[in-house]
């Protein structure tokens, strides 16, 4: 991948999207890389559409503004596909990772993705309900992004999921999130 990777997250308040961006940044700290993770702040309300961003680079990151041309677009809530243009500004070789039970080909058509862009789907909400008992799709989304982009190894990612959930949650929740991350990695589909 390029020297710098820029990621844009689309989610809704309360889904753990901002946490996901933070965990990814932490996981990418490995191998001496520079990272940024930041949400777009507005009135924070559960269910409201939100964006968050990551930059990951081998060089010092000096840019301090939203990502305009993401190489990776992570859509944590597929209902957003109907209300906002998630493909806005995405690069020609952008990778889309969408949380949906639908077929990746159907999503590719809906996104009007170009042939040079890749589209992946993952039923992250179902995995989260299976593993954690709640519709918090961030862990399986991270697993899927890890597989789709190779920006971080699964081991590094799992270690960081363990670390960041370990601060707040019981072992059962941590194990559930680790399992969800692994399933996200294993079950992501390209189309």
């Amino acid at each position: 991948m390029a020297d710098m990777i820029e990621i844009r997250w689309h989610g809704r308040g309360g889904q753990g999207t901002v946490t996901a961006a933070k965990v990814l940044a932490d996981a990418c700290l490995s191998s001496g890389r520079h990272v940024q993770a930041f949400p777009e702040y507005g009135p924070e309300r559960a269910g409201a559409p939100l964006r968050a961003y990551n930059r990951i680079s081998s060089k010092e990151l000096r840019m301090h503004c939203p990502v305009l041309n993401p190489q990776v677009v992570s859509i944590v809530d597929a209902t957003l596909l109907d209300s906002i243009n998630v493909a806005d500004g995405a690069t020609k070789d952008a990778i889309f990772v969408v949380n949906t039970s639908k077929d990746p080909k159907e999503i590719r058509a809906k996104l009007k993705a170009e042939a040079s862009q890749k589209v992946f789907t993952i039923d992250a909400t179902k995995i989260a309900i299976d593993c954690i008992g709640r519709a918090l799709p961030n862990a399986p989304m991270l697993g899927a992004i890890c597989k789709a982009t190779s920006i971080v190894t699964l081991d590094n990612l799992l270690e960081d999921v363990r670390k960041s959930f370990g601060k707040k949650f019981a072992q059962k929740i941590i194990d559930g999130n680790l399992e969800a991350t692994k399933r996200g990695y294993g079950e992501v589909k390209e189309g």
Binding site: R33, Q36, Y41
Partner: peptide, 12 residues
Amino acid sequence: LDGFIISHSIER
């Protein structure tokens, strides 16, 4: 330091 842009954003 800049509000939100630095204060609330994660960096290495």
